[in-house]
Design a protein around this nucleic acid. Sequence first.
DNA 1: TTGTAAGCGTTATCAC
DNA 2: GTGATAACGCTTACAA
Lengths: 330, 330
Amino acid sequence: MGRSMATARDVAERAGTSTAVVSYVFNNGPRPVSAETRRRVLEAAAELDYRPNILARALSAGRTYSLGLLIPQIRNPYFATLAEHLENFARQHDHLLLIGDSAGDPEQESAHIGSFIERKVDGVVLVSLLVEPAIQRFAAAGVPVVALHPVPEGVTVSTLSIDYVAAAEASTDHLLSHGYRTLGVVTGPEDSPGTSEHRRGIEWALEKHPRASARYVACPVSRFAARDAVQPWFKQKRPPRAIYCSTDEQAFGVLFAAWEAGLRVPEDVAVMGFDGTSECTVTIPPLASVRQPIEETARRAVELLLDRSNTQAARHVLDYELIPSTSCGC
Amino acid sequence: MGRSMATARDVAERAGTSTAVVSYVFNNGPRPVSAETRRRVLEAAAELDYRPNILARALSAGRTYSLGLLIPQIRNPYFATLAEHLENFARQHDHLLLIGDSAGDPEQESAHIGSFIERKVDGVVLVSLLVEPAIQRFAAAGVPVVALHPVPEGVTVSTLSIDYVAAAEASTDHLLSHGYRTLGVVTGPEDSPGTSEHRRGIEWALEKHPRASARYVACPVSRFAARDAVQPWFKQKRPPRAIYCSTDEQAFGVLFAAWEAGLRVPEDVAVMGFDGTSECTVTIPPLASVRQPIEETARRAVELLLDRSNTQAARHVLDYELIPSTSCGC
DNA sequence: TTGTAAGCGTTATCAC
DNA sequence: GTGATAACGCTTACAA
């Protein structure tokens, strides 16, 4: 029982028809089937509890009904939330989501890319450490990709993201409008996608506030790395009055470092995150941030990948939302 | 280029042999191959950049080289960490890890179970909401399972976990040994696996401290739900002096609720978590907890599932470690 | 030690 | 509208 599933052949025999017709019924095509025959097939299938063998289907039809998600770190709540939403939308379309967590390691990322190609996923949602090689390999294998971060000009791929430069500028503006003059900036690694966009937005904002100055530090996107990265600032006589973080994950580490150094947030140092995960509402104190439209991103990413007519690489821009909260001082 | 991969047939032709031998070489069996022939096959394979088609292999051999992980919530850092380690070990054994996140919803859990069975995973690591139905379905489909939580007596399945009762007792003992007399206990839902083990351990500890009393609340395993669940306590004139949480995830919400209510941790209220994720080291204040051996659990789970000789259901018990920290008052 | 050929369970072409 | 039948690419008896 359950040991060996019924096959299309069994259903065909019981319905007094052929395996071809069984296939036509279950796929609504490519040939038409009379109402009466269809009924008999569905009845037989129900009686035998027939479920098409996905593996056989994949081998024959060349589609696996699976999507890949490649991310730097599943422990980052932003990516965990993204994965949740993508999984929901993928399931609604009868697809399985494969999650490839690189854990910040390009080698693991590379292994996942190979794995996704090998398993012939129908499409990949990409948040990559090393954007260009990843895109090259998927392109060479004919796997559709949607990237969720900025990608260098000239690289042909669909992207789906907010305007990072504008969001960074708005966020910095918001911080500086409190009158804070000294800014600390925590970004991801120099070469990681998005870092230069954050910088550019921050610099644009700084131009409008000539008395403000900024110092920068780049570190891995982890709360632990960020804590370590800002500790030296907090030991100085004059720590930055406000800290801009390019991810919430890093901001979590900054909040801790401030607490550890005996600095009050926001009275002594203001902090701003980026991503706007719901975890921000229960940090101590609640974290101001820039909300990314995670659910909409997930919905559209799945649509883009599964819409097989859509073969154009396009750059889609979504809206962000500035979320002030206790940590920024308002 | 990359469009259509080389097949075993191509390799066989180029090496002047048959597809059978190609298969023997790539699987190290089941028939022996002479050194010379093996060399020619490998050479031809390298020249053609041949990679066996995993789908075809799965269909033919009945193994998919994939493992499933079924968890209640990927956003919980404990499960995210578990997923990371499992993925690493699975990859070391050339297996892919499929993550099924139920998001606390039995219907989603059920859908994932169906999906894992349908895709014929070679084994499943189970952290389930509804243990028995899950185990039934996998058993009926002939899928090996390792459960990472307590499972009712009489259910035949391998388990791999710490002794929850003993750990809960030790943790409660530790709290009470500070002299705290009033204890608040936050557990997961009444019917979720583990809850009764936590309760039992706590009660054993309470018996040794006759002047101590406890009040209980059950809530979903989420920091948000836990925050809401303990808020009423913190509004009372005499909140519990110490709070035991059956997961770190819930303890995170308790720390926030205490802060929000103006209570100091640990001066006004002590807090203990459970799971011992590294996130505990950067909460405000750092969270005392019971460390689960996540990496070892992951390693052994993969070994158990892939060791095909091992068909016995056994209950494996791992060691936990009590981790005192600021939040408990020592 | 190697080759032939029959599956694995679909899909889809092509003839009826 | 329907039914044979040849793929899909691999594994593995069985024969040589």
